[in-house]
Amino acid sequence: MLPLLLVSFLDQVVADREGSECAARAMMSQLNAQGVKLVLPSLLKGLEDKVW
């Protein structure tokens, strides 16, 4: 789910971007330590992407 949310941050439609931001915030707020370990590699990979 996370990779799809990260891609949708680049959407041209403002409502889509805002929706993906709300969904990402809700998802991240519920992560425990194990969830952070699973999500962190995707986030770090995204930081290396020139599009971001």
Rank of each mutant, 00 (worst) to 15 (best):
M1P: 15
M1I: 11
M1N: 12
L2Y: 10
P3N: 08
P3R: 09
L4A: 15
L4Y: 15
L4C: 13
L5C: 08
L5R: 01
L5A: 07
L6D: 01
V7K: 15
F9T: 00
L10Q: 09
L10P: 01
L10H: 14
D11Y: 09
D11N: 14
Q12A: 09
V13Q: 15
V13G: 04
V13F: 07
V14Y: 07
V14K: 08
A15Y: 09
A15D: 13
A15T: 05
D16M: 12
R17M: 02
R17S: 02
E18N: 11
G19L: 02
G19A: 12
S20K: 00
S20M: 01
S20Y: 02
S20R: 01
E21R: 13
E21C: 13
E21I: 08
C22H: 03
C22D: 04
A23S: 10
A23E: 00
A26F: 04
M27H: 03
M28A: 14
M28T: 10
S29G: 10
S29T: 04
S29W: 06
S29E: 12
S29H: 07
Q30R: 14
Q30G: 08
Q30I: 00
L31S: 05
N32E: 09
N32H: 11
N32V: 08
A33D: 13
A33V: 11
A33T: 11
A33I: 08
Q34N: 12
G35L: 10
G35C: 11
V36S: 01
V36W: 14
K37F: 02
K37G: 05
K37R: 13
K37Y: 03
L38H: 12
L38V: 06
V39D: 00
V39S: 11
V39E: 01
V39R: 01
L40Y: 06
L40R: 13
P41C: 06
P41L: 03
S42E: 13
L43D: 02
L44M: 11
L44A: 06
L44G: 02
K45N: 12
G46K: 03
G46T: 06
G46Q: 03
L47Q: 03
E48H: 07
D49T: 10
D49M: 08
D49V: 13
K50H: 13
K50Y: 06
V51T: 10
W52H: 11
